[in-house]
């Protein structure tokens, strides 16, 4: 700003003064600097999350009348959701399947993360990349791949049959909650490995030596030092998997069969063929609240547990 056009009211000194004032304001107010840094994300989140959520919440108090919305606020949808046992069943099933999936994923991922953190000396990054390999293909493709593996004449059944271990194909593999748990656990494994790996990698190796020095064998040391110190990673991994999988609808729709249908499939139906958007909105809000309660309780309990170990 070294040149100014003649005739404008803005003189260089004016510009500088304004600029100085803005600079001073930024330097003096740390919160303002913080919000400025956050602002692009805040805008996206406001438009992408808060606005749709507000619409959803509003709609959940409406009523569907044929092809019209009755916009008089009412709690009818919520009352219906509590009355009908099918919604409760679906909600519980969603939580159970997703809970089983979170536990299975963490149990499978922990040894892998442990191996890379403690036993791989070189090329750790390469190992991590290899473990995230399932993510290089589309989610839908992976679901179909599992269909091929778990199917009536799929890889597992025909393999076991040809070896002679089973005579009839195992029917519970596909179109069942088991299939959903297996597929989701595989699909989300990398999300569990990374936080667990980070928390294991962060453990000061001299703590492990100190535990050994104080008389702990490998097993005692694992349960007294390694596991409690990696708990933050386990908690993060569990939540990262539980929250999105509880609302998953692709996998249950394709692999779940009648017993594997989850809440999200019902919500989808409400917005689709049933054409009762307000009811779908109410179910969504209800599910969101339930998941939030579960997640917060889980976080609270595990934090208490971590303190208890100490």
């Amino acid at each position: 700003m070294s040149t100014t056009t003649v005739g404008t009211h803005v003189t260089p000194s004016n510009v500088n003064r304004t600029r100085d004032r803005i600079t001073a304001m930024f330097l003096g107010n740390e919160a303002l600097r913080g919000y400025t840094l956050l602002s692009p994300t805040l805008v996206v989140m406001a438009i992408g999350i808060l606005v749709p959520f507000a619409i959803l919440l509003t709609m959940s108090f409406w009523t569907q009348v044929a092809f019209e919305f009755d916009t008089t606020p009412s709690l009818n949808n919520y009352a219906k959701a509590l009355e009908h046992p099918v919604y409760e069943t679906l909600l519980w099933r969603s939580i159970m399947i997703s809970g089983a999936c979170s536990i299975a994923t963490v149990l499978l991922s922990y040894p892998m993360a442990y191996y890379v953190a403690f036993h791989v000396k070189r090329y750790k990054m390469l190992w991590i990349i290899l473990m995230t390999l399932p993510f290089w293909t589309s989610y839908l493709l992976r679901v179909f791949a599992w269909k091929v593996i778990l199917g009536f004449n799929g890889v597992i059944n025909s393999g076991l049959k040809s070896v002679g271990i089973i005579e009839q194909p195992m029917e519970f593999l596909l179109y069942s909650p088991t299939a959903v748990v297996i597929t989701l656990a595989h699909a989300w494994a990398a999300f569990a490995i990374l936080p667990i790996y980070v928390s294991l990698e962060k453990i000061d190796r001299s703590l492990l030596e100190a535990a050994t020095d104080l008389g702990d064998g490998p097993v005692a040391r694992f349960f007294r030092i390694t596991l409690p110190l990696s708990l933050p990673g386990i908690i993060a991994a569990t939540l990262i998997i539980f929250i999105p999988t509880v609302g998953d609808y692709v996998t249950p729709a394709l692999l779940g069969g009648p017993d594997g249908i989850m809440m999200a499939n019902m919500i989808q139906a409400m917005f689709g063929k049933v054409n009762d958007w307000p009811m779908g909105a109410a179910l969504s809000v209800g599910m969101m609240v339930t998941v939030a309660v579960f997640a917060i309780t889980f976080m609270f309990v595990s934090r208490k547990a971590t303190e208890q170990i100490g």
Partner: peptide, 25 residues
């Protein structure tokens, strides 16, 4: 004799105080 069975104990350079335990533990 593995390290956890030796009649020796060590004070580490970094002290290696277990962060999840209090002083008593």
């Amino acid at each position: 004799v593995p390290p956890h069975q030796r009649p020796v104990n060590m004070v580490f350079q970094s002290y290696a105080i277990f962060p999840h335990l209090n002083v008593r533990a």
